[in-house]
Design a binder for these strands. Sequence first.
DNA 1: GATGAATGAGATTTCATTCAT
DNA 2: TATGAATGAAATCTCATTCAT
Lengths: 225, 225, 225, 225
Amino acid sequence: MITRGHAPDGEGIPSLADTSALREPPATARGARTRAALVAAARIVFERDGYLDSRLTDITAEAACSTGTFYTYFAGKEEIFQAVLEVAQDDMLHPGMPRLDPEDSSPVGVIEASNRAYFEAYRRNAKLMLILDQVAAGDSGFREVRRRRSRAFADRNARAIKDLQDRGLADRDLDPLMAARALSGMVSRMAYYAYGLGEDHTLDELVETSTALWANALKLDRNAR
Amino acid sequence: MITRGHAPDGEGIPSLADTSALREPPATARGARTRAALVAAARIVFERDGYLDSRLTDITAEAACSTGTFYTYFAGKEEIFQAVLEVAQDDMLHPGMPRLDPEDSSPVGVIEASNRAYFEAYRRNAKLMLILDQVAAGDSGFREVRRRRSRAFADRNARAIKDLQDRGLADRDLDPLMAARALSGMVSRMAYYAYGLGEDHTLDELVETSTALWANALKLDRNAR
Amino acid sequence: MITRGHAPDGEGIPSLADTSALREPPATARGARTRAALVAAARIVFERDGYLDSRLTDITAEAACSTGTFYTYFAGKEEIFQAVLEVAQDDMLHPGMPRLDPEDSSPVGVIEASNRAYFEAYRRNAKLMLILDQVAAGDSGFREVRRRRSRAFADRNARAIKDLQDRGLADRDLDPLMAARALSGMVSRMAYYAYGLGEDHTLDELVETSTALWANALKLDRNAR
Amino acid sequence: MITRGHAPDGEGIPSLADTSALREPPATARGARTRAALVAAARIVFERDGYLDSRLTDITAEAACSTGTFYTYFAGKEEIFQAVLEVAQDDMLHPGMPRLDPEDSSPVGVIEASNRAYFEAYRRNAKLMLILDQVAAGDSGFREVRRRRSRAFADRNARAIKDLQDRGLADRDLDPLMAARALSGMVSRMAYYAYGLGEDHTLDELVETSTALWANALKLDRNAR
DNA sequence: GATGAATGAGATTTCATTCAT
DNA sequence: TATGAATGAAATCTCATTCAT
C-alpha cells in the first residue's frame, strides 16, 4: 500500500537544512519578533516583485526596520528566501486536516488523498512556488537540493509501487522507480499549469484526472484494498 | 490516431514569432557572418554562464567583435536569446530522420516514436532547455508564450485522445484535454530530470517507461491499430 | 657616557599619556577582570587581523562579553589599542633583567647593552610593532606622538654623543643630534626588517653589527671607558 | 667601488610589476588621455586625503569622469595606486640630472651622490611616500614587495661593500649584507623624519651627516679612490 | 554592570546602452 | 558596418555606537 505523506515529485519542499541550522536563533523575544517580521515581509515582497526584482530595502521597508537589522539575521537575499521556504514548508507538510478518509484506505484512495493534499498545498503557495522555480532555475545549488529531495520522495513512492506489484495489484512490467518519478512529475506539472500559470481547472478535476491516470498507469484495480 | 509531431508538453519550443520577423536580415555577406558569429557566441556563453549571469560583453568577446556591433543586429539580450532559440528550434522540430517504423503506426507505436523524438531532441539541447527555464521563470511574457504553445500541443493531443476514445480504444472516463496536458507534462518532466538534472537513465528506459505509462493511462490496447 | 635606557629611535613606545589617565579604573573586581579580558582579547585580535581589519565585535567575541560591555571600559578602538600598548610598553621599557655587564660600562658596552635590549623587546612584540606602524601610518595624531617621543630619545642620545665628543672619544665632525637620530633610526629599521618582515638574522648578528656600526660611525675607541 | 644607482633601502620604489603588465593599455588616444587623467587625479586625492580616506568618487570627480569610467581602467583603489606609484617610480629612478661629479668618483663621493639623489627624490615625493607607508602597513602583499625590493638593493650595496673590504678600504669585521641593510635603512629613516614627518634639516645637512656616518661606519679612508 | 538588537550613512561595483569616430 | 570609451543609476553590505531591558 502506498504510504502516507506521498508528495508528488517532492518539489517545492526543499529543506535546505544544510545551512538553516548554522545560524543560532535570536536570543531575545524582541529579536525573534523582528526576525519573523522580516521573513513575513520577504514573502510579501518576493510574491509581489519576484525574487530577482526584489531589493533588500523593500523587505526592510515592509518590515519597518533598517537595512542594518536585516544583516543581523540573514546574510543576504538567498538566506532569507530559505527562511521563507521553511515557513511555507511547514504548511506544505502539515496540512490543517487529515486527508485520508478512514473508510477508504485502498491504494487508489491513498493516492487520491495524496494528490488532493498536494494540489491544495500548491494552490495555497502557488506564488511562492513560482518564485522557487525562478530561484532554482538560476541557482544550481538550489537545483541540486530539489533534485535530491525529489529523489527521496520518488524512492519512497517507488517502494510503494513495488509493494503493489508484489501483491499482484500493479503492472509488473513497470520499473518502480521510473514510474514513481514520472507520475510524481506529472502531478507537479499539473499543479504548475493549473495554479502557477492559471489554467482554469477545478480542484476536483485535477484530483480526479491525476488519480485516474495514476491508477490506470499502474493498472490498479480500483476495488482492491 | 495521435498525430505525428506530437511533442510532449510543447515546452522548449516557443517561437516568439511576434518579434523575430521584424528585423530584416543583414544586407551584406559580412553582416550575415557577423550576425551568425554573435548567435553562436551567445549560445556558448548562455550555456556556460546561464542567461542571467551572462553579459553582452562576454558574447561580443566570444564573437570577437565590439560591443557596438552587437546593437547593429540585436536590440538586447532577450532578442539574441530568441535568435539562439530559433536555431535550436529547427533541431527540436526536425529530428534527423523519422524514427517511425513504417510497419508500426499503431497508436502505441506513434506515441513511442513521439516520445523518443522528444527525448532525443531534449538530450541534444539539454543545456539550452535549462536556460530556457531560467528565462521563462523570470519573464512572464515568455511564460505566457510557453503556456500558449503548450496549450496548442495539448489541444492537438487532446483531439487525438478524443479520437481514440470515440473509436473505443481509450478510456472514456478521462477528460481528453486534461489527460493530454498531464501526460505531456509527465514526459517533459522526465526529460528534465534525466538530461537537465543529470539523473542517469538510458534513452531506452525513458522511452519504454513513458510509453508504457501513456498506454496504461489511456488504457490503450497495445495491439490495436 | 651614553645613559641607560637608550632606546633606538624611541619608536614603538608611545605613552599617549594624555588620555590614558583620564578614565578611572574599574570599581569592582569583576569589572577589572572584564577589562583585562577585553585588553587581552584586543591584542589577540589586532595581531591576528591587523588594526584596520579588526572589528569591535571580534574583540568582544574573543573576550566573551557583549558589545555593550565594551563601552563600559573604552571609548572606542583607539582607546583599547592604547591600553594594549600600555601593557606591552611595560615589557618594552623594563626588560626582565639588566643586560649590562657591570664590568663593562665602557661606551661601547653601554651601546651594545641598549641595542640588545631593544632587539629583544622588539622580537617579543614584533606583531604588535607592525600594528603600531599601521596605526601610526593612518593617524597623524599618533604619528606626532611618535615623533615627539623619538625626538626625546634622540635628544638624550645626542647629549650623550656630545659628551663623548667633548671628552675626545667621538668624532667631533658629526652633528650630535642628527647622528643620534640617524643611528637610532638605523637600529629600529634593522629590528623591523629582522622581526617585522622576517628576514632571518640571529639576535647576536643584529647586536654585533648594530653596535659595530654605532661605534665606527662615532669613531669610538673600543677600549675607552 | 660602490656602484651607481645605490638607493638606500630601496624603499618607496616598489614596481609591483607582477600585476601592472596584465591589463593592456588603452586602444585609443582618448582612452590613454582618460587613464592618465585618472592617475593624476588619484595622486592628488591620495596626497590630500590619504589612501584610506579617499573615495573612488573623489578621484573620478577630480578627473571629471563618471564612476563607470574608472572601472574601464582599474579594478579598484589598489590598482590605481599601483599606477600612481609607477609614475612616481620613474621620477625616483631617473633624476633629472647626473648626480656624480666626474671629478669625484671616490667611494665617499659615490655614496654622497647616491644619498643626495635619494633625499632629493624623497623630498619630491614625500607625501606619496607617507601614503605608501600607510598602504604597506595595512597590506602584507605590498609589504612583501617592498621587502624583496629592499633586499635587492641591499644585496647590490653589500657587493659594493665587499669589494671595498677586499681592496682593504673598508672595515673587514663587518658583515657586508647586514651593514648594507642597516646603513640603507638609516638613510631611508632619515629621509622619513626629515621630509615625511617634517623635522627641519637642510638637504645639505642630511647629505653630509648620512655620508659621514656611512664613511665612518665602513671606516673608509676619505681620500681613497 | 551586562546585554544584544537596532541603527543608517555611505562607499563600492556592475553593465546595458549610446554615440562620436 | 565596426569600434570601444563613456555613462550613471541603483543595489548591496559594513560596523561603530546607542540605549532599552
